[in-house]
Amino acid sequence: MVTNFLIYGLVNSAILMLSAIGFSLTFGLSGVANFAHGAMYLTAGFIAWMLINYLGLSPLVAMLLTVVLMGILGALIYRIILMPVRGIVLSEVISTFALGVALIEFFRWKGFTSFDFSLPPFVKGSIEIFGVTIDYQRLIIIGIALIIALFLWYFTHYTNTGLALRGMAQDEYTALSIGIESDWAAMLSLGLGAALASVAAVAILPLGIISINLGYEIFLIALAVSVLGGLESTLGLFVGSLILGYAMVIASTYLGPQWGQVVYLGAIVIVLAIKPSGLFGKYKELEERV
């Protein structure tokens, strides 16, 4: 029972982290709260499905191609939709929100609503660990979450491009004055965010069917994890995912499955009421005043 709880809590945490990481990265690097994050996730799922079922690509190729295509789409979204309103936070939120709803409802309108839409797992089958049966796909999700986290840490600390993006996030004018371009940086962070949303999609979606409402749900999860951990905080993303991941498992085990969702929605409200900057968020205004 306890091992069951520990393992499935960990899987759930990894799922939350993967779902949120694209949103959190984009916000951390460019300050854009991408309200179309969930829609990107959903779109990635359908693109992968279409590549497999219409073009007959092998699942692995289709999934890699999806990640690349979504990365390009993310960059285009910045170029076309966000660039004109860059710097007006409310307009950024409105335009990404509108785009997200438009994408999600487009799929609903086109009839992507049946049970036919699902992605194949990377590896079929399951294994028993400490007496708990767990399928390979869930283990792979934990692996991918770790790999992505390590990759991003390396990317933002040791590569020229990553350091430049972080520099731009910290101080735009200083970054500009040493030759880093702000539009380029924002375009790249939107592209990376969309690519990460699609990595999450192709890894997580094989666990069930691609349901339209995931477009909204994934965004809310990303928001909950980021708000709880503190926006812009990598450590917060980890801890936020773990807390919510386990809390959701506890709630759905003891109170019933429908309570899982209440947990993350409740977390948003509670955190905003008690500590709006999140567990590891920084009070920038305070720092600047000092």
């Binding site: 520099g167 910290q170 101080d171 970054a175 004055s177 040493i178 880093i180």
Partner: peptide, 29 residues
């Protein structure tokens, strides 16, 4: 910047979350 006009802004701006060496290296972006 490519032409060699470099501005060092007022109030000694640095990238606060990065190390000194990372800051310096970024200068050569």
């Amino acid at each position: 910047v490519e032409l060699g006009i470099i501005l060092c802004r007022e109030r000694h701006p640095v990238f606060r979350d990065n190390t000194v060496e990372e800051n310096l290296k970024l200068g050569g972006y």
